[in-house]
Structure formats: structure tokens, C-alpha cells
Design a protein around this nucleic acid. Structure first.
Lengths: 236, 236
DNA sequence: CGGCCGATTGAGGCTTATCAAGGCCGGTGG
DNA sequence: CCACCGGCCTTGATAAGCCTCAATCGGCCG
């Protein structure tokens, strides 16, 4: 597969929450030092347990970040799109990857040696502060998600998953979510089983909230979904 | 209630993962700028939703950090002991507290204005890098906990909760865990109900794994607990 | 001593995971 | 072009785990 070397100055990644304050001077260095790689759909990018040696910027494509829990069940921690960075939690350099990553579609990723990244970071107060903010944000997100997964019923968790996908990847004019996942993968996001996903998606379709064509899901009534997954069930 | 002003140079907090690389020079400044406050058992320290104006160092005592989820159920995110810092996720300064904090016992806390802390941080590359590492670690912990809460059954979650308490607060020579929590609070850690906690603790006691005296729990067979909550149930 | 708060225990019902069977679709090979 | 096969999706039946509700008990404090 032949692809051309992406230009950092033309890439989503330079504007992401972590890199947005990286100076052009340093971006030039990153542009020189980075390596780019092509990953086929389904190909593994990161392996849980292996040492962290580099971080990955997603130039194009999508990825799922999964982790294995007790009982050896896989769980999807989050989904990545162009502009997202993989492996950042290993920034300390002394740890192993706590999760694996797989390409959901054909993707182009740029890798940057962790040591080089750390050098750049240490000379860039703005950059490191943005990393702090990024992590603080992610931590709040993780806590939020935990609360949802524990307290919502399956119907709500699946509705919430659809909202997440919609917000993350967007939809075309028909409301069709711009990502394709298996029922099993939807289950690994919502933390339930593929059968439950199937059943509730059918329900949602009967209720006119979504439509399912072949392999893609369209949201017809976003507000309905929101109120289903919403926090508005106040009973005080 | 009369308490004396704690000396930062004599405090656990200066050696915690975040502050351990803070120079004496800066610690002197913190020592001058900080305020110390006494909190009675049960008293609220931080209120979810309120703006973040300062961070809190726990000088002595214990605290629970709780957050309200959908259905208005409270959940304990983590427990704090001397040396821990509260409110750090609000470090950006533009956010509101994402969780509340309550004193579990009579406690002495030192508060430091967030702006002052940020100034110190920005002039201390070592300090900010430690904050990055701290957050990266917390993020991994949160993901780990999420996996457990979703995949373990109630029995395992309660065993895991006891292990957490033991590791966090330690035990005396009898194995008695050095913290007292209500069944309801144990339930808010394990993400179940107080009745389930009661039932399984009774079971554990019958099995000789723990003993319950008045209000305190002693671990008699730590290994048994570990194997119960352990990740060793590999079925490949 | 009475009242209150928390702990305990049991019964009942609901939600959800599991298991199983069948259907759909795309790909492959004859 | 058609038959076959495998992967994925769908749907239903079943069973188990867990929550909820309710009653009782025990300790603590006024």
C-alpha cells in the first residue's frame, strides 16, 4: 500500500486539545521526526501489556481502544478519529500499554518516539499544561462514564452509546452515523451483550427513533434519544 | 475548635506523588499562602457544581469524594487520606467541581488558592510533569475500576472494595481495617445496595474470611479475598 | 425507657445474561 | 449462474442474579 507522508501543518492533529499550542518551530521538528504508517481495517496498532515506546497521531481513519477485564471480556474504552492521540497515558515512559488499539477502517497513523515527544514537551510549558488540562478532562469523562455504566439500564446505555457515536463521528444529512460497528462492538461500548443491543435497536426502530439500513444506523429523533439517556430523571 | 497551623515541611502532603518534587523554596511560599481549616465528621468540604477556587491538602483525617449520577444516586469515586489532594481535576480553573467531598472523620485540611497554585506550577517544570504523571495514573485507575464495576458480580465487587480499603488505609495487628464506613457507603463504593453489602459481609464472616465487630471489619484471610476479587479467572 | 438510625434477613419480582435456533447476506467455488 | 458456507444479526425461551420492599433486630442517645 502506497501512501504519501502527511504534512503536520496540514493535519487535524496540530489543532487538537493537546497540540493546539505547539509552536510552528516545534511542529517542524515533529514533522521531521515522525514516522507514518498505513493500517488495514482490523489491524492491531497497540498491544496491551507491551512497553510504551511511541505515541500515535491519527491522520486519517478510525480506531477502537479496547481493554481486557476480569473474565477476559473485552471492553471498548473509547473510539478515536483523526486528530486523536493514542498511547498518551504511557507518557511516563516506565509503564506498559494499559489497552490495545485496532483500526476500524483503513487508516494512516503517524508515530512519534516517546523520548522525542518528552523532550519537546519538557521545553514547552504551554504544551505540557495543555496535556494536564487534557488529562483532567479525560479523568472527568471517565468518572462520568463510570457513573452511567453503573446506574443506567441497558436501554439507556444503548441510547447513550448512539449519542456518543453521533457526537464523535457526526452524521450525514439523513442522520446516518458516520461509523460502522458490529453489534458486538456496540455491546462493548455500552457494556452489555450483542443480543441486547440487537433487541433494543429493533425496539428503537419500531418506535421510529432510529432506522437501520444494511449496516448503518440513522438517528431520526435525536431528542428522543437524549431524553432516554438523559440525566433529567430527577426524582428528588 | 482550636487547631494549630500545620507546617508544610512536617506534612505528608509534601511527599505525595504530586508535590514530591516541589522545591523547599516553593514549599516555603505555599506554607505562607495556605489556609488551614478544621472539618467535623460529616461536614461538606467541596460541593459539586460550584466553581473551583482552591485545592485542598488533607493534613489529617479522611474524606469521601462522591458524585451524583443519573437517577440521583450517589456514588463514591474515591476515598482520601492524609497526603491526598482534593479538587485537582479543576486545575484548569474554568470548570466547576465535578464531585463533592465530605469529611469521614474530624479532619484538618489546608487550602491553597488555585491561582497561586497555578503560578507556582507554571514556574516549576518538575511539579507540572508530576501532575501529568499523576493524572495519567489516575486515568488508568479509573479505567480499571470501570472494567471491574461492569464485569464483576456483587460478591466480587464487595471483596474488591474490602481490598481497596485495606490497601488504602491499612489495618492494625488484628487485621482490622482502619476506616469506618456505613453499609450504605460501602455500597456506594462497590456500586450495589446496602442490603447486598450486608448479606455478603455476613457470608464472608460465615466463611471465616472476615470478622465483624461492632462497626469495624477485620480481614482474617486476605488471600481468600484476593482470589475472590482477583483477575485470575482466566478461561481463555 | 422510648425513639431513632443503621444493620440484618427474607420474599418477591424484574432486569439482564445466556443459550439456542433460524434468517440474511456476501463470498467462494463448482 | 447456482449452491454452499460462514459470519453476523435477530428473536425467543429460560434461568439466575440483583434490587426493592418490608419486617425485625440491635445499639445508642436523649
Amino acid at each position: 500500500m502506497k501512501i504519501s507522508n502527511p504534512d503536520c501543518f496540514q493535519c487535524y492533529c496540530k489543532d487538537c486539545s493537546v497540540m493546539k499550542n505547539c509552536s510552528d518551530e516545534w511542529l517542524t521538528i515533529i514533522n521531521e521526526k515522525k514516522n507514518y504508517e498505513f493500517y488495514k481495517k482490523g489491524q492491531q496498532i497497540i498491544t496491551e501489556g507491551k512497553p510504551v515506546k511511541e505515541i500515535y497521531f491519527i491522520h486519517s481513519g478510525k480506531a477502537k481502544i479496547v481493554s481486557i477485564g476480569p473474565y477476559n471480556k473485552e471492553q471498548i474504552l473509547w473510539l478515536a478519529k483523526p486528530g486523536d492521540i493514542l498511547g498518551l497515558t504511557g507518557i511516563g515512559g516506565n509503564s506498559n500499554h494499559s489497552s490495545s488499539a485496532y483500526a476500524l477502517e483503513d487508516s494512516v497513523l503517524c508515530s512519534l518516539d516517546l523520548k522525542i515527544f518528552l523532550e519537546i514537551v519538557k521545553q514547552n510549558p504551554d504544551l505540557i499544561f495543555d496535556i494536564v488540562l487534557f488529562f483532567a478532562d479525560e479523568l472527568r469523562n471517565a468518572e462520568n462514564r463510570m457513573k452511567k455504566l453503573v446506574q443506567m439500564n441497558v436501554r439507556e446505555k444503548i441510547a447513550d452509546t448512539l449519542i456518543y457515536l453521533h457526537n464523535k463521528f457526526g452524521a450525514d444529512t439523513n442522520g446516518t452515523i458516520e461509523v460502522h460497528l458490529l453489534r458486538q462492538e456496540l455491546a462493548e461500548i455500552a457494556c452489555t451483550t450483542k443480543e441486547q443491543v440487537s433487541k433494543f435497536l429493533s425496539e428503537f426502530e419500531k418506535e421510529g427513533i432510529i432506522s437501520i439500513n444494511h449496516k448503518s444506523i440513522s438517528i431520526l429523533n435525536f431528542q428522543m434519544l437524549q431524553s432516554m439517556a438523559g440525566m433529567q430523571k430527577v426524582e428528588v
